[in-house]
Nucleic acid binder design. Structure first.
Lengths: 346, 346
DNA sequence: CTGAAAGCGCTTACAG
DNA sequence: CTGAAAGCGCTTACAG
């Protein structure tokens, strides 16, 4: 069978405990003892059995990240950063996709995998007010987003309203007056959509512009390129006139920008577009996308830190974090200096 | 402490083995016995301890997917599909990022995580010829890509040369004559780059066009938007004239397309662009991207199947799979009918 | 179909 | 600093 610590111990002439100490990096081992153990490990090709350690200690070193869908760029970039941050703390990441389906979202909280992982970083889409009791789970949980809150657990959120207001103000400051809000959903009373919508309305109010219901364009919850393209296309088909779009995320904004250009609109000349999330894609779209960075770097880092501290028992009271945000200027609002200075050279 | 099978067994008045049988879905259990067990599980809130099962059986139900970087759309979409395919087989996926760094790529093969997972789906970037011995690992391994081969293990590859030839022929068929190959790398003698380059050259040969070294533009191995944009920009700066670009992947192609448009070139009128991979982004770029689908759906599905069958011991001889590919027409070569018929309606 | 017992490979008090 | 022994919670022959 496999080489065990016992085998290594015998070979090195020490006890299994000493091997364990060496493998786990405990100090206070005589250098010569350590060397003998390491030599025995090398000789025998010993590999620690992680399941046995997990069984004994009750900890696996695994954490889960549950997101709607990994192929959505925002979540792919989040996952990439979560994995990197976890690595730095010696943790391994399992990724689960729930697709925003309620049954799968419930399963994330209680499924068999929760006995395997030491903690969960969770970005739900279907759960919401009324489901708080479900969050009373016997493991470290960090919630991403603002669909649901529970005083007993850690949250990492965004400054949705203030950031969406800033995005809208950026458009109004350029003289745009018919600004489409792309993404509100009357059926959703919680989550990013209503919060960003509030920011949009606040900006209009502050500028003394009356809201126009025909410019408040709901979408389904799948904030993808396809949804953005289809929705803005329908708006154009309906004969609605507008000079700017606030996409409630970058994919919606990029999908809308694409569709507008296909239909012959110039961006930003005819229609300026702003997104939300600051995904990589918007840095290479044509034109580049003006967007909101809601704290890209901080969100994954803080979420992993919270999980790790909670599971090591060094965390204090549950907290709620909402990082600083900023506007990232791009060509889609004429704010990218590259576009202004670029000249065709061939 | 935690509720164990013993506790459930006592409560239900059966042995632990019966509880195990029920939990693991073995047939031939008397319905009334099963019901008693299920009731006891519900009463006590029993959860199977996965680590204990793994220790006993030697299998964890975990597989790893190791890729350069999850934030690269191609790998994000691959990972999403691998997770879905694994789910269908009751497997859970750990994702590891090696960033193409050789030391990390070696660690993927031998690190502690390999004692935790039942198998590995591996897409290396730095490993290559000469490293074959490293692939002689004591666990199921499926290799993605064509950097390195080992007769003893399963491979899922692409028909790189034939597909790149098709992409180039598509451009030549439109009368393009100065076609840039964006992505070859003289320092790389294996992997996608030289194979796709060969397909490019084959297409030129077949059309009786002499290769022009100034159109064969190397890039670094990071086939990102940024690399594509920077490289094509330099080519323009150098005064090289061209009427088409074969990007060796979609990100290079999209980055190049972006940069060309920023510099005032019209795509496809002045320069036609083709990519490779068929990532989602190219469906919503402006214009949409003509690209090669190298078997998007089949690659992840087959990789997971191979790992699963190998670990269950039902696989036969190691095989090498290269799915069917196809050209996906888009606006970047004037092949997208939407662009032709679309009319600005406002 | 079911029970009793051993053992997977670790870590952890308990002693020294 | 190190040894001997127990036990984490399962599954699996072995019996019945």
């Amino acid at each position: 069978m496999a080489v065990t610590m016992q085998d290594v111990a015998r070979r090195a002439g020490v006890s299994a405990k000493t091997v364990s100490n060496v493998v786990n990096g405990y100090p206070y081992i005589r250098p010569e003892t350590r060397d003998r153990v390491l030599a025995a490990i090398a000789d025998l090709g010993y590999r620690m059995n992680t399941s046995a350690r997990s069984l004994r200690t009750g900890r696996s070193g695994l954490i889960a990240l549950a997101v709607p869908e990994l192929s959505v760029p925002y979540f792919a970039e989040l996952a990439s950063q979560v994995i990197t941050a976890a690595e730095e703390r010696g943790l391994t990441v399992i990724i689960e996709q729930h697709g925003g389906r309620r049954d799968l979202e419930l399963d994330v909280l209680t499924g068999e995998r929760r006995t395997l992982t030491d903690g969960l970083i969770y970005s739900p889409l279907a759960l919401g007010p009324g489901d708080e009791a479900l969050l009373d789970v016997p493991y470290p949980l960090v919630l991403l987003g603002e669909r649901i809150f529970h005083p007993g657990i850690d949250h990492v959120t965004m400054q949705n309203t203030a950031a969406a207001r800033l995005a809208t103000e950026h458009l109004l400051a350029q003289g745009r007056r018919r600004v489409v809000a792309l993404g509100p959903n009357p059926e959703q009373d919680v989550g990013s959509a209503p919060l960003r919508f509030r920011g949009y309305r606040e900006a209009l109010d502050a500028a003394g512009i009356a809201p126009d219901p025909s410019l408040e364009v709901p979408t389904n919850r799948a904030w993808t390129h396809a949804t953005g393209a289809r929705t803005i296309g329908r708006l154009v088909d309906d004969g609605v006139r507008f000079d700017a779009v606030v996409g409630f995320n970058d994919s919606l904004a990029l999908g809308a920008m694409h569709e507008l250009q296909v239909r012959g609109f110039r961006v930003p000349d005819d229609v300026a577009v702003v997104g939300f999330d600051a995904i990589d894609e918007g840095r290479y779209s044509n034109p580049t996308l003006t967007t909101i960075d809601p704290g890209r770097a901080e969100i994954p880092r803080e979420a992993v830190r919270m999980i790790d501290e909670r599971k090591r028992g060094v965390a204090g009271e549950p907290t709620r974090i909402a990082p600083e945000f900023r506007l990232v200027p791009g060509g889609s609002t004429g704010a990218d200096e590259r576009v202004d200075t670029a000249v065709a050279t061939a």
